[in-house]
């Protein structure tokens, strides 16, 4: 078995939130405004009515690069209702609606340093 196969089977259980520390100071990315800069502390979607299941949204966000520990910067907003938003992640820019961004908890860069 190669490294990737082992990797897939070793991490069946999602990393515990407790390990990542408290999320007290965290706020959802959906409430951010242009210029916000911080770090993702949690990606977890609750079930939304009329959409995909929370687990599916969570996996899609992970696939697009939204993962705990990743730096995030809100760079653009749409005209109507400031929606959708565009955020800069480690090495790509991703556009999403604020509805989906509710699942991404972020902490402003300053608070991390403190």
């Amino acid at each position: 078995m190669d490294a990737a196969v082992r990797l897939l089977s070793d991490f069946d259980i999602p990393a515990d939130i407790a390990e990542r520390g408290t999320t007290d100071a965290a706020s959802p990315l959906s409430e951010g405004r242009v210029g916000f800069s911080g770090v993702i502390v949690e990606v977890r979607a609750g079930d939304q009515s009329g959409g995909l299941s929370g687990a599916e949204i969570e996996r899609r966000l992970l696939e697009m690069g939204f993962v705990e520990g990743a730096p995030v910067r809100l760079v653009h907003e749409g005209l109507f209702g400031r929606d959708p938003i565009a955020v800069k992640l480690a090495d790509r820019t991703v556009a999403l609606r604020r509805r989906e961004a509710r699942a991404v908890m972020v902490r402003a860069a300053g608070e991390i340093a403190a």
Binding site: M1, A3, A4, V5, L7, L8, D10, F11, D12, I13, P14, A15, A55, E58, R59, L62, E63, V67, E68
Partner: peptide, 17 residues
């Protein structure tokens, strides 16, 4: 092939690797 659909935990593991 040993591929199977990754869970969100496994996706996080892929991220770390």
């Amino acid at each position: 092939p040993t591929w199977r659909e990754p869970s969100s935990g496994e996706l996080r593991a892929l991220h770390r690797e």
